[in-house]
């Protein structure tokens, strides 16, 4: 079971500002889902390698060749805020 503190911790980890009600609802729903997911514990996976990929490819690499970048203005065009050629973000207060 995960408690309110866990939910707050996870929300902070993933940068989600949740209201009091959302935190409480999230706690209930996550517990309900996790109860279902806990059925996995019953599956015997002793000695079973995990599958990270559905493909069996290995060593997919590119040669060290320079390709054209995208123009600076098109890479900055979506910026919510910018200062000249730079992306601008509010001040960083260290946690």
């Amino acid at each position: 079971m995960i408690d309110r503190k866990d939910v707050e911790h996870v929300a902070r980890l993933t940068r989600l500002a949740l209201t009091e009600e959302e935190l409480e609802r999230m706690r209930e729903q996550l517990n309900s889902i996790l109860t279902h997911l806990d059925t996995l514990r019953g599956v015997d996976t002793e000695g079973v390698e995990p599958t990270a990929h559905a493909v069996d490819l290995v060593n997919v690499m590119r040669e060290d060749e320079v390709e054209p970048c995208l123009p600076q203005d098109s890479m900055l065009a979506n910026a919510p805020d910018r200062s000249g050629e730079l992306f601008r973000v509010p001040r960083i207060i260290e946690e």
Partner: peptide
């Protein structure tokens, strides 16, 4: 494939 050269104009070597 963006180049790694140092000192280019900001955000001019990105994709």
């Amino acid at each position: 494939g963006c180049p790694t050269t140092f000192g280019a104009a900001p955000n001019s070597q990105t994709c």
